[in-house]
């Protein structure tokens, strides 16, 4: 069960199943300290693990990076962390 941010690469290497996130490299599970988001990605991946039946299934988790950043910015400001 793969989590990918590069749909074209995942399609080319033909993995059994993958969850695609439109996010940057190195951020497969979101942003620092956003525990709910990190958890949501894992649970979506595990759900796909249980549900997918066809090899090559790529499911989208439709959360835009712009929304993630906006949310992270407000969250980290509250926490006093750098963005």
């Amino acid at each position: 069960m793969s989590v990918t941010v590069a749909r074209d690469v995942t399609e080319a290497v033909k993995v059994p199943r993958a969850l695609f996130l439109p996010w940057p490299m190195g951020h497969h599970f979101g942003v620092p300290f956003h525990l709910d988001l990190q958890r949501r990605v894992i649970l979506a991946a595990l759900m796909l693990l249980e549900e997918s039946a066809e090899p090559g299934t790529i499911r989208d988790l439709p959360i835009k990076w712009a929304d993630v950043r906006r949310e992270a910015k407000s969250m980290l400001t509250i926490q006093g962390q750098r963005l």
Partner: peptide, 18 residues
Amino acid sequence: AEPREAGTQLRPGLWQTI
């Protein structure tokens, strides 16, 4: 559409680039 707002692969054409 800007990928960050469109929800598409943030770095398109990665397979070809690599």
